[in-house]
């Protein structure tokens, strides 16, 4: 069984030999490759008459990207969780004027936010400036993976929030306090989802 590397090599050799893309496609289909695999492999080479064939830019992976994006998304995760905790405890205090533990949770949450919020802000704005200066950095595979992981977590949280809301409705616990707390989770998770969904949309216009 041939690997994708061999497929890429075959396409390169075929293009060098002057074969048309249609001929290459039919030969590969005949050999058992799927149309999606062929399209992806052919897409790696620019459609130009220039020889040898010109490769299109590919995604990059670097240790620096891993450090920056893992830190940024880690901070986002910790900060978002603590933002929800602080706001939910404030809602609890609004309805139930009691609880030493609640005060402790607010103190810890605020401490986390004081550290994570400015750091996230700084890292995000700094990275945006770098991306604006050098669009080639948009091809970072790690950046793309981290963004999709953030989308996955935000979507999972939104679904969990929706399930909890329906469950509360069915069990008769659908109080104003619950609505506010579920709303906070929905707003934070929904905001993060929209933010990164829009960011991907802006970077991948196709």
């Amino acid at each position: 069984m041939a690997s994708r590397d061999e497929l890429s090599l075959f396409i390169r050799d075929a293009l060098v030999a002057g074969k048309s893309r249609a001929d290459i496609t039919s030969a590969l289909i005949h050999a058992g490759w799927s149309e999606r695999e062929i399209t992806d492999a052919l897409g790696a080479w620019a459609e130009t008459a220039f020889t040898p064939p010109v490769p299109r830019p590919v995604q990059t992976v670097s240790a620096r990207d891993f450090f920056v994006y893992a830190l940024t998304f880690g901070i986002l995760l910790v900060g978002a969780v603590n933002l929800v905790i602080v706001l939910q405890v404030l809602v609890d205090l609004l309805f139930d004027n009691d609880g030493y533990a609640a005060v402790g949770r607010i103190r810890f949450g605020v401490s986390v936010l004081i550290v994570t919020a400015p750091l996230y802000l700084w890292l995000t704005l700094r990275e945006r400036r770098r991306l604006a200066r050098d669009p080639a950095l948009l091809r970072s595979a790690i950046r793309k993976w981290m963004t999709y992981i953030a989308l996955l977590l935000a979507a999972g949280t939104l679904l969990g929030d929706l399930i909890a809301t329906i469950y509360a409705l069915l069990t008769g616990d659908f109080t104003t306090q619950f609505i506010l707390k579920a709303g906070i989770v929905g707003l934070v998770a929904g905001g993060i989802f929209l933010f990164y969904y829009n960011a991907i949309g802006q970077e991948e216009p196709e």
């Binding site: 900060g79 607010i106 949450g109 934070v188």
Partner: peptide, 18 residues
Amino acid sequence: IGFCLAVAFAIGVGLWVV
């Protein structure tokens, strides 16, 4: 901007309460 405001609100009100 909304996130920044939400975080500022949480920190401000949180500190005011505790």
